[in-house]
Design a protein around this nucleic acid. Structure first.
Lengths: 156, 156
DNA sequence: CATTTGGGGTTCCCTGAGGGAACTCTGAGT
DNA sequence: ACTCAGAGTTCCCTCAGGGAACCCCAAATG
């Protein structure tokens, strides 16, 4: 948990960070996305402290990104993505694209993604929801929205 | 800085987090994206500790995401996005989309984005780079890539 | 010349979150 | 009765974030 409360800010980036901004949270989400759904699996895969993993899973469940499901009569649980969580994976996919391009180096990307719809190895592309053309940092003008803060000091 | 070194992992998400995973870094990037380029501006806008802001800016410059430019004969500097940094803003734009949808509540989104190409208020959409169809968490199969770790324990 | 101002940081101390390892609890299996 | 495996808890230690005060430099001001 960051010391400063991001959830209160009138900024969707800050609010999103309040959900997955803590260290390890995005990697926990990734593991669950690719099918590692159990506590010990995730702990072993990431090498995260059990204490911190407990806290992160609880936080993600609390925010409706994960659901905890029993899979046995014994007290055994697995964590699965909710709809809200699956949409959050969009953020991870874009991080993958950036990391693959700028940080992978000689070895190339650690993981490839085959798109079910077309069968090709593909990356994600950002497009405008209105016209379908590419939409990136310099392609937009930022305007205050209905939920803007009283004093427009903060953007996003 | 997280205690565990994410940069060493064979995972583009972890590597990306090594660049912007620390608390505040995405918000610093956002401020610079929307035109707040100076130390005191960013510090005042975010309410971040000066010490931490110094460290974050240095880290982002070191990783080639920002550039520090003198703008006066006096020792005055502003921070601007590099190409690498502008592409990283893609991640922020997707976070905005998710936060707007799931966390904005009654008030609506704090900020709107007008797409220069079409002039409409728009969101970003994730599309397949190969076929142009939507591409989200469940639309892909994850395969080991050329830069995969020896033991395929880690995905992403 | 001495002083003020303002940007851009440093330094200091305090608290609390992450790391690591050991411990616990529960309900099978044998 | 004993062991085992999954899923956490508990405890201690260190180091990173918060906050406030301090510093340095160059120009403007009196």
């Amino acid at each position: 948990m960051q010391r400063t409360n991001f959830a209160e800010m009138a900024c969707s980036i800050a609010r999103t960070l309040d959900v997955i901004g803590e260290p390890w949270s995005p990697l926990v989400l990734r593991d669950i996305w690719v099918g590692m759904n159990r506590f010990d699996q995730i702990q072993a895969d990431l090498g995260i402290s059990r204490k911190v993993l407990t806290e992160r899973l609880g936080h993600l469940v609390e925010h409706g990104v994960l659901e905890k499901q029993a899979y046995d009569n014994r007290p055994r649980y697995e964590y699965v993505l909710t709809e809200k969580g699956r949409e959050l994976v969009d953020v991870l996919m874009v991080m993958v694209g950036w990391g693959d391009k700028w940080l992978a180096g000689e070895a190339g990307p650690p993981v490839l993604y085959r798109h079910h719809a077309c069968g090709e190895i593909a990356r994600v592309d950002l497009r405008c929801s209105q016209c379908g053309e590419p939409m990136h940092a310099d392609d937009v003008e930022v305007l205050p929205g209905p939920g803007a803060a009283p004093q427009p000091a903060s953007a996003g």
